[in-house]
Design a protein around this nucleic acid. Structure first.
Length: 301
DNA sequence: AAGCGAACCTGGCTGC
DNA sequence: TGCAGCCAGGTTCGCT
């Protein structure tokens, strides 16, 4: 096998899986050379993108919400977002590759290999993104919190701040559907379509319910709010433990590809049986805010 | 002002 | 086989 596919895809568990996949190759390693093959992805690269990275050593690989954060010894932070279709792969030296596989992999992906990092440990980190909804930026570490991307971002769902009281406080008075409120990155940062559908199905809450119904009059948390907060953490934790979800990707299973998709109870299961205990309902697909919602109308109220 | 739909882009799948 | 149409894990912008 020529390269390790450091996973793909974009909700919090997938980004965390990518972070863990990249960390052993990148932390403590010097960036010898950077190939930036186009001037923009979703946004333009910073003008001095290459020069601010070449010759620098990566101190740490972090994550905030769906953003990967590489701390550089210059004091800069390299921000990387995968958008919808971004992925990293790690390749060892060229002499370690099987020629046939090399050709196969390159011919399939090379047109969308937008950034290549050549590292001092002999490894090559390649960012591939067909739809180019991802992006990269570089900012001084001290300016990160004020960066427009992070200035108004919500809490980490796996941090201590997420609990029923927080949900009730943020959702009180909101008529927006619960599904949309949970996807709002300014409230909770990192949830996406899959895990919101899964968490709502597990808690038997309708995605169409007004978000404000998780708060009592006066703003106190309902039992449902406490339940939902716990289930969100549970679902994300389970997904991270198995390497996230891998959809529409039939490449090798070398341990870096996730398999949480086999645990889906709602997402992408239209027409199939609801897996909640005691429920004989069927998963439906509806559209909310232009995005698919999968849920069971029989048990999710 | 919140809350929608559209836009950004490519590729894969479905159905005629 | 060809091709049109729809769909995709995210985010932002602009119009009600």
């Amino acid at each position: 096998m020529n390269g390790v596919n450091a996973a793909e895809m974009p909700e919090l568990p997938e980004v965390e899986t990518v972070r863990r996949g990249l960390e052993p190759s990148m932390t403590g390693t010097k960036i010898l050379r950077v190939e930036q093959r186009r001037s923009d992805l979703r946004f333009p690269f910073p003008m001095d993108f290459v020069s601010r990275l070449e010759g620098r050593t990566i101190h740490a690989m972090g994550r905030r919400a769906k953003y990967l954060l590489a701390d550089i010894d210059s004091g800069d932070v390299l921000i990387m977002h995968l958008g919808m279709s971004g992925s990293f792969r790690i390749e060892a030296g060229a002499d370690a590759m099987a020629p046939g596989e090399f050709h196969h992999t390159r011919s399939k992906n090379a047109a969308h290999d937008h950034v290549v990092f050549h590292l001092s440990n002999g490894k090559t980190i390649i960012y591939n993104d067909p739809r180019r909804f991802g992006f990269m930026d570089i900012v001084p570490r001290g300016a990160l919190a004020e960066h427009s991307l992070f200035a108004h971002i919500g809490i980490e769902p796996l941090g201590n701040e997420l609990n029923g009281d927080y949900l009730a406080q943020k959702f009180a008075g909101k008529k927006t559907p619960l599904k949309a409120a949970l996807l709002d990155q300014s409230l909770i940062a990192g949830l996406g379509n899959i895990y919101v559908c899964e968490a709502l199905n597990r808690t038997r809450l309708s995605p169409k319910r007004a978000a404000g119904t998780l708060a009592k009059k006066g703003g106190a948390a309902t039992d449902r709010a406490h339940l939902l907060a716990g289930v969100i953490r549970e679902v994300l934790g389970e997904a991270i433990a198995v390497g996230g979800s891998s959809l529409r990707d039939h490449r090798q299973a070398d341990g870096t590809l996730g398999y949480f998709q086999h645990s889906f109870r709602a997402y992408d299961r239209e027409g199939e049986a609801c897996r909640n205990e005691g429920c004989a309902g069927t998963i439906r697909r509806i559209v909310q805010s232009g995005r698919s919602t999968f849920y069971c109308a029989a048990c999710q109220k």
